[in-house]
Amino acid sequence: MTAVPASNADYATANAVVTLSRGEQPETDLEVKRSHFLGRAARTDDEAAARAFIASVRSRYPDARHHCSAFTVSVPGAQPIERSSDDGEPSGTAGGPMLDVLRGTGLVNTTVVVTRYFGGTLLGTGGLARAYSQAAADALNAASRVRLATRHLWQVRVPVADAGRLEAQLRGQGGPQDIGVEDTQWQATHAVLTLSTPTADAEALAEQLAALTGGAAHAEPAGSRVVETPLPAA
Rank of each mutant, 00 (worst) to 15 (best):
T105R: 03
N109R: 12
D100R: 14
G104F: 03
T115Y: 01
D138C: 08
L107W: 00
A131V: 07
Y132K: 03
G127E: 11
V114Y: 11
A131Q: 05
V112I: 10
Q134K: 15
L102E: 07
A136D: 11
V108M: 01
G127W: 01
L102N: 04
G119Q: 14
S133Y: 05
N109K: 14
A139P: 10
L122N: 14
G120D: 05
G104D: 15
T110R: 04
T121Y: 03
L123M: 07
G124E: 11
A135K: 07
T110N: 06
T105D: 01
F118D: 02
V101Y: 02
L102D: 06
Y117K: 10
V113N: 07
S133A: 15
T110Y: 01
L123G: 04
T121Q: 10
G126K: 03
T125M: 14
T105E: 02
A137E: 15
G106E: 04
G127T: 09
V113F: 07
N109I: 13
L128A: 02
Y132L: 10
V101H: 03
A129M: 05
A131R: 04
A129L: 05
G120I: 07
V113H: 04
A137C: 01
G126C: 06
A135R: 04
G120K: 02
T121V: 15
G126Y: 04
